[in-house]
């Protein structure tokens, strides 16, 4: 009697636990890199939405197609904001057009909040630092962008090159430092690096030196080369290296720490080609994909694949921005950055 009662009570509980275990196993299997190759063959095509340049995106998708010639890849590229606006507008209308997202944290975090991404823990993730992958499995960094001050070598003597962010406050630079208003990641990076109160004071002091605000990274890089100003506070050393290679009189300062933000890869929640999306994510994160990225040249995020040139990261104090601390704050922090430097 006692035994029977025990059984009748336990049965539904055990069933529920078993069901939960099966669901968990399915979820883990699905979220951790299970790709149905037959399903991928049936899907045949997929769309990447990205905020990296169309030229670079095409190099990546062509390398992927070389490996999987039976897959057709469509590329769409817009700046991080327009990209987000298009995805959200499509989603509101119930039309989900992208399978894979390759974009900055700004767009990716918002899409995660809007439940437009799905967990995917690629087997390649074990080669990535903890700061470069989402603990919940929604995104993994494919590329990193370091930030430092760049300078015009004709206008700045070697011994004047700043080595510490504080040196930008030196009266020598008054009215001679350009700020790219389209790179709020730099502001967020320093906020996390220095601590919010100290960083905000620093930024206000810097703005008081009459910094030169510019609305475009390209314009900021090129005008630095042309000698319009000697110093550009929030440059991307990767870009500076590109124009250095062409012979421009520019270089970048090896600062005490380089705030660094990633370009993230994530899979769409409503992907029409979920298997190909996972396959592409795996490829981008694999050593092979990271080498393609390195030759573009972009800075690979995977441990063990050095950038080209390697001094972009080697021996430097790279400060990885804590992406998850930005969730839901992207717009506000960007606004704060712009206002601090006299922009609206």
């Amino acid at each position: 009697m006692e035994k029977k009662r025990y059984r009748s009570r336990e049965f539904p509980v055990l069933t529920l636990i078993a069901l939960a275990l099966v669901l968990f196993a399915c979820n883990t299997l699905w979220g951790s890199g299970h790709i149905d190759m037959e399903g991928a063959r049936k899907e045949g095509r997929a769309t990447i939405y990205s905020s990296i340049s169309l030229e670079d995106l095409t190099i990546l998708s062509r390398a992927f197609q070389k490996k999987y010639p039976w897959i057709k890849v469509e590329n769409y590229r817009a700046g991080k904001i327009r990209l987000g606006q298009r995805i959200i507008t499509e989603a509101r209308a119930g039309r989900h057009q992208f399978d894979l997202l390759l974009s900055s944290a700004f767009t990716t975090l918002e899409m995660k909040l809007q439940k437009l991404l799905v967990r995917y823990e690629s087997p390649e993730r074990s080669h990535y630092r903890p700061e470069l992958k989402d603990p919940e499995g929604y995104w993994t960094a494919a590329q990193i962008n370091t930030m430092s001050a760049s300078y015009n070598t004709k206008l700045v003597n070697r011994d004047e090159v700043p080595k510490h962010w504080r040196e930008l406050l030196n009266p020598r630079w008054k009215g001679r430092i350009a700020i790219n208003a389209n790179r709020p990641e730099w502001y967020i990076g320093l906020l996390q690096m220095m601590g919010e109160t100290e960083a905000r004071r620093y930024m206000r002091d810097l703005a008081d030196t009459k910094t030169i605000p510019l609305e475009s990274a390209t314009l900021a890089d090129e005008l630095l080369a042309a000698g319009e100003y000697p110093l550009y506070a929030n440059a991307a050393p990767g870009n500076t290296e590109r124009i250095m290679k062409k012979g421009a009189p520019v270089d970048w300062a090896r600062m005490n720490a380089l705030p660094t933000y990633p370009i993230l890869v994530s899979v769409a929640a409503h992907a029409k080609s979920p298997n190909i999306a996972r396959l592409m994510a795996d490829f981008l994160l694999s050593e092979e994909g990271q080498r393609v990225l390195r030759e573009i040249p972009r800075i690979p995020a995977r441990t063990g694949v050095e950038p080209n040139p390697s001094h972009l990261t080697r021996g430097l104090n790279i400060f990885y921005i804590n992406i998850n601390a930005m969730v839901g704050k992207g717009d506000d922090l960007e606004g704060e950055f712009r206002r601090t430097f006299g922009l609206r």
Partner: peptide, 25 residues
């Protein structure tokens, strides 16, 4: 155009924008 184009319907102004954003002045 930036919100409406696709790979097949890309137009010159998108190309200009992309080259500019890539730093290829």
């Amino acid at each position: 155009s930036i919100l409406l184009y696709t790979q097949q319907t890309i137009v010159l102004s998108i190309l200009v924008f992309d080259l500019w954003e890539s730093g290829l002045y």
